[in-house]
Design a protein around this nucleic acid. Structure first.
Length: 548
DNA sequence: AGTCAATCTCAA
DNA sequence: CATGTTGAGATTGACT
């Protein structure tokens, strides 16, 4: 496939240069005045794979001009993946840094996020002239291609990561349909009308007053202050070591139910109240900034807006446009299925070849009513590193029935405890332990044992969570390609193992089919001919809240 | 007035 | 002896 290297210049211009697959230039560098228009034209002519420093910086400009591209190679994201694989976590990933590493020169720190090309140039003063930049892009890309070719799975991983960056930019551009009216109505219903200034909403103030009263009314107890709450309980002869909801639930005091209600509503008000609405919703759309590869395991993060923690009650505010619908799809029990496929455990894969995985495994836990629940606890413990109380017995059942799956996560935990790196199926690599960790573990004290176990839990979970993220990313890339061929439908939300597509009603069935096809394709690309199924639960709804 | 850790709850 | 993963984000309260 043809590739085209891109370097952004100041003032909307730039330089492009065609490349062969291995990164060798196949034509001259061409300086253009309007980079966005140039990319649009070349995309229409032949849809090359665009090789550029950062999708997150360039794609918003392209999308604003109505230019969509099919494929790219994001040099910064790929650099991060390659550095991570080499155990060099967190080193600078800019093209300038990669170029410096290539030449054995001092490596510059990455610029702060948000800086524009021209701002960076003036900040660092000594940047090379524009004509030089394209040569850096070409050289860094060629080196990355050499690195990718040596690593099994990396070609798919880097392509999917880059496609993910395009999805992220497009989702921010499209926005999640969000009804400010319904959001406001929900808040008013639960909290009372919107207060002026920084006052507490009526309902919260009532609850706060009742809490003070319940503690005897002598002076105010600020329910927002854990310290004051703890003191108040101590004065009432009911000392608590924390003010968490699940701790308070076991305390018998009239303030408790009021406090729990206050906490829940207060959380809604502070995290997703009117000021959130003012800040994040405009023109009927919620537009968070997604950070691809922002989590060590390859899951995405977001910058502002708390998009990955939208409370369930607020999903009522996510409403399709008239004549449109939301296709909500989530991968059922993704992580245990990933473990089954990853470990190649025959007995486990057999169980995972059916609908409900936990029910399928329940047989291993005997003939009891709560066998499914036990199977679930055992699986989650195996993946999260639990093992207290009841989970001990459950884990031993798992070990005898599904030895390969058990051994897979155990061996990841042992590798972690030895300070080794572990990787996802496609090669995404966990960060190495810190210097502080190594010091701790030398000490040989209780704190050392604690640090070892903690690292083991991390690596045990990493192999599963990161491979699940691999799978989800490949699914996303596949789904994006299928939706692009359909026209209007757009991806508007992605959260670890769940996607939302906004589509014209008449295309809903087609979108549902595309989701299932994409899931199958992802399973095949990662695991080949595995028997494990990766079912997607889909719902076609007017509002996100109706999905489940 | 700004920074930072601790605490808490939300999501998968 | 105790052993549950990854995050975002708001607030308090201590510190500079």
């Amino acid at each position: 496939m043809v590739r085209v290297a891109v370097s952004e210049g100041a003032g909307g211009g730039g330089v492009v240069r065609p490349l062969a697959e291995d990164g060798t230039p196949s034509g001259p560098a061409v300086e253009v005045d309007d980079l966005v228009a140039e990319i649009g034209e070349r995309e229409r002519d032949g849809a090359p794979r665009w090789v550029w420093p950062s999708t997150a910086r360039l794609a918003p400009r392209l999308l604003a001009a109505g230019v969509r591209v099919a494929r790219c190679h994001d040099l910064e994201l790929v650099e991060s993946l390659l550095l991570g694989h080499a155990g060099r976590y967190g080193e600078p990933r800019s093209v300038a840094a990669a170029w410096a590493r290539l030449r054995g020169e001092p490596v510059p720190d990455d610029p702060l996020p948000g800086a524009t090309v021209s701002a960076q140039a003036s900040l660092f003063g000594d940047e090379a002239p524009v004509g030089d930049d394209i040569e850096r892009v070409v050289a860094v890309h060629a080196e990355q291609q050499r690195g990718i070719a040596k690593l099994h799975g990396f070609a798919l991983l880097t392509a999917a990561e880059s496609a993910g960056a395009l999805v992220a930019a497009e989702m921010t551009h499209a926005g999640l349909p969000w009804s400010a009216e319904r959001h406001d109505a929900l808040l008013t219903e639960m909290l009372g009308p919107r207060p002026s200034g920084g006052l507490r909403p009526r309902r919260l103030q009532e609850l706060a007053d009742r809490i003070s009263d319940a503690f005897g009314g002598r002076g105010h107890v600020n329910p927002d202050s854990p310290a004051q709450i703890q003191k108040a309980f101590a004065s009432a002869g009911l000392p608590v070591n924390s003010t968490r909801a699940h701790v308070l639930k076991s305390v018998d005091h009239p303030a408790v139910p009021v406090l729990l209600e206050y906490k829940e509503l207060s959380r809604l008000h502070t995290a997703h109240g009117w000021s959130w609405l003012d800040t994040w919703v405009a023109d009927g759309r919620f537009r968070p900034e997604y950070v691809v590869g922002g989590v060590v395991s390859g899951r995405w993060a977001t910058n502002g807006g708390g998009a990955l923690q939208i409370p369930r009650v607020l999903r009522k505010a996510v409403v399709a446009d008239p004549g449109w619908t939301l296709v909500v799809a989530d991968a059922a029990q993704l992580e245990p299925r990933v473990l089954a496929a990853l470990a190649g455990d025959r007995a486990f894969a057999e169980a995972a070849a059916h609908g409900d995985l936990y029910s399928a495994l329940a047989g291993a836990f005997g003939d009891r009513d709560d066998a499914r629940e036990k199977a679930k606890i055992a699986l989650l413990s195996a993946m999260y590193g639990g093992g207290t109380g009841e989970a001990v017995q459950l884990l031993s059942v798992l070990r005898t029935r599904f030895p390969d799956a058990f051994e897979y996560v155990e061996s990841a935990a042992r590798a972690g405890e030895r300070g080794h790196l572990v990787r996802s199926l496609l090669g995404r690599t966990c960060p190495p332990p810190s210097a502080g960790w190594r010091e701790l573990t030398i000490a040989g004290e209780e704190t050392a044992a604690q640090a070892l176990r903690s690292r083991g839990r991390f690596t045990r979970n990493f192999v599963v969570q990161a491979t699940a993220a691999d799978w989800a990313l490949v699914l996303l890339a596949s789904l994006r390609r299928r939706l692009a061929a359909m026209g209007p439908p757009e991806l508007v939300f992605f959260q670890h193992d769940e996607v939302v597509v906004h589509a014209p009603c008449e295309q809903a069935d087609e979108v549902v089919a595309a989701v299932h096809d994409a899931a199958r394709e992802a399973a095949r690309l990662l695991f080949g001919a595995t028997r494990v199924l990766f079912p997607m639960e889909t719902a076609v709804v007017d509002t996100y809240a109706d999905a489940k």
